[in-house]
């Protein structure tokens, strides 16, 4: 049984959805934040990939591309002691109120 991210050759009849969406502001911020942290050598691509692969199979399928990046980034920042889950929880609630 393949790990969920290991998709090469996994039987699929699904047609390829060729529609494209403009990246949303937060998606572009995610890509940029990851680049900034990479430049500072606080995280690297291999860690980011490892964090994405650690997402449970159901979550992996459910989340969008940058949502997986966000989840992995959180794993890494907490693991490295740069942020805590509690402070991200708290601030995310504030961010939610600010933008809803």
């Amino acid at each position: 049984m393949n790990a969920v991210h290991d998709m090469g050759g996994v039987p699929s009849e699904d047609p390829i959805d060729r529609s494209e969406h403009q990246l949303m502001e937060w998606e572009r911020r995610t890509g940029a934040l990851v680049d900034v942290l990479r430049e500072k050598q606080l995280i690297n691509t291999d860690e980011l990939r490892r964090g994405i692969e650690a997402i449970s199979p159901d979550e992996y399928r459910r989340l969008g591309y940058y949502e997986r990046w966000s989840a992995s980034l959180e794993t890494l920042l907490v693991e490295k002691g740069l942020l805590t889950t509690e402070e991200i929880d708290k601030r995310a609630a504030v961010v939610g109120q600010r933008w809803v």
Partner: peptide, 11 residues
């Protein structure tokens, strides 16, 4: 192996 590596199952 279930640790991170870059070798896909199909090869």
């Amino acid at each position: 192996v279930d640790t991170h590596h870059r070798t896909p199952a199909y090869v």
